[in-house]
């Protein structure tokens, strides 16, 4: 499968995040609510939107700028927090 260190790190961190979500869900179950996204969302949905949004932020960064991709990472993290908190 041609594993490399960066891709392995990527998948392990996604997996750890999923485990974290699972534990969080067991400790305090989610309540459905609607924030600035029009739809009503659960915590899992917001997490998914956060990840998907981060992917698109990285792609846009790569497509439109020549700056280092590392800058896109904190931007994605901010997006993730916004979605999780107010989404």
């Amino acid at each position: 499968m041609y594993w490399t260190l960066p891709t392995a790190t990527f998948f392990i961190s996604i997996f750890l995040m999923l485990c974290g979500m699972l534990v969080w869900e067991l400790v305090s179950p989610t309540i459905e609510r609607s924030g600035f996204l029009i739809i009503s969302t659960t915590r899992g949905t917001r997490f998914f939107l956060g990840l998907l949004g981060s992917a698109f932020i990285h792609l846009a960064w790569l497509g439109f700028t020549d700056l280092s991709l590392w800058i896109a990472l904190p931007i994605s993290a901010v997006w993730m927090i916004i979605v999780m908190r107010w989404g």
Binding site: M1, Y2, W3, T4, P6, T7, F10, F11
Partner: peptide
Amino acid sequence: MTVVNYSVQDIFGPGEAVFVG
């Protein structure tokens, strides 16, 4: 997962790949 792995490497042949980010 395989696709993600391929997408960051240049693959010349079986087992020969270079990481290209």
